[in-house]
């Protein structure tokens, strides 16, 4: 069968099965299990209504538990066992082995750099773009163009930026814009930007900043518009200049939103894999945790250390997780 046909067939079956479950289970509940007629009609309706939320929730809960909750526990277990010894419990041996690898510490160092640089730059650029575009007529067009990279895959973005960083031998015309400018301004030989240790990390980070700035801009722009006019008018009357208004009146009022944007990008950064995988694959000292983990899992086939590094990522995410849950609880009260 042609793959396209196969695809269509599976779509129909998959979605059909989902709908059939909901419709069928509700029908079963109302007609067969607790029919709303006969001697026990009233009690049956109450019972049906007790069960129904769980009927609605069941597929979602099942998938959530199986695909997100269970793996957290299982990964923790795997990180404490050794696959080669038939899954024997080895305590923290995997973690010890991981800590002895320089590549791991390189990944940690780079991840910390990413964690500082990417959210900071994305938020700063996003705030700048939001503030500037809010004041001009064609601001919406400008916004949607800055926002556009959000739709581009990390892999696509990697190709786009690899072209920017491309280097040709000295003396020939450069086709990567960065080297073209570099040669033109400095007269030096073109550089293989992605192979220059340490600084190449920043060239990779630029890609993510480029993608995430639009996100920050959209959220912050909405927050800026939500600022009460009176506070700004009062500042103008008091003779504040535009910069004072921005930094002393507007920014403090949207601090909460800035924090949300910051943490959201932080989570993206912790999981960043595609960009490093596609552009350098962790060579030239650009390793990050997610790619280190992928390496361990699927190249070295070392599930113990792979799981241990996944747990490190989980550990780094945990503060944000707790903070989010705490906020959500506070809101529901």
């Amino acid at each position: 069968m042609h793959p396209a046909l196969q695809g269509v067939a599976t779509i129909v079956i998959g979605v059909g099965a989902c709908l059939a479950y909901f419709y069928g289970s509700n029908q079963f509940l109302d007609r067969v299990l607790f029919p709303a007629k006969g001697p026990n009609a009233g009690r049956n309706i109450n019972r049906a209504n007790m069960v129904r939320p769980w009927l609605f929730l069941f597929p979602a809960l099942f998938a959530l538990c199986l695909y997100l909750a269970y793996p957290v526990v299982e990964t923790l277990r795997l990180s404490l066992t050794d696959r080669n010894q038939d899954g024997a419990f080895v305590g923290l041996a995997n973690y010890a082995q991981m800590a002895s690898e320089p590549k791991f510490w390189e990944a940690m160092r780079n991840n910390m750099l990413w964690l500082i640089v990417v959210p900071a730059l994305s938020t700063a650029f996003g705030l700048l773009a939001a503030q500037l575009t809010d004041r001009i007529k064609w601001g919406n067009i400008a916004k949607s163009l800055i926002f556009m990279p959000m739709a581009i895959s990390f892999v696509g973005a990697s190709v786009i930026w690899k072209l920017v960083y491309d280097a040709r031998p000295p003396g020939t015309e450069q086709i990567g814009v960065l080297n073209a400018l570099y040669v033109w301004f400095t007269g030096n030989d073109p550089q293989q930007w992605l192979t220059v240790p340490f600084w190449n990390n920043f060239f990779l980070m630029i890609v993510l900043v480029w993608i995430q700035t639009g996100f920050a801009m959209v959220i912050l722009s909405a927050a800026l518009r939500g600022i009460p006019e009176e506070t700004i008018e009062a500042a103008i009357v008091d003779g504040a200049n535009p910069f004072q208004i921005f930094f002393k009146i507007k920014v403090p009022q949207i601090m909460g939103t800035i924090l949300v944007v910051w943490t959201t990008i932080t989570i993206v950064v912790l999981k960043v894999f595609d960009i490093v995988y596609a552009m350098t694959n962790g060579q030239w000292e650009t390793q990050v945790l997610a790619n280190y983990m992928f390496d361990k899992l699927f190249r070295a086939n070392d599930w113990g250390v792979g799981s241990a590094s996944a747990m490190v990522i989980m550990l780094l995410v945990t503060p944000i997780l707790v903070w989010n849950v705490w906020n959500a609880r506070k809101e529901m009260r």
């Binding site: 990964t75 989570i267 999981k271 989980m314 989010n324």
Partner: peptide
């Protein structure tokens, strides 16, 4: 809470 669980954890299990 699950909103931010990295999917990296889910790969092997």
């Amino acid at each position: 809470g699950l909103l931010v669980v990295p999917l990296q954890l889910a790969l092997i299990p």
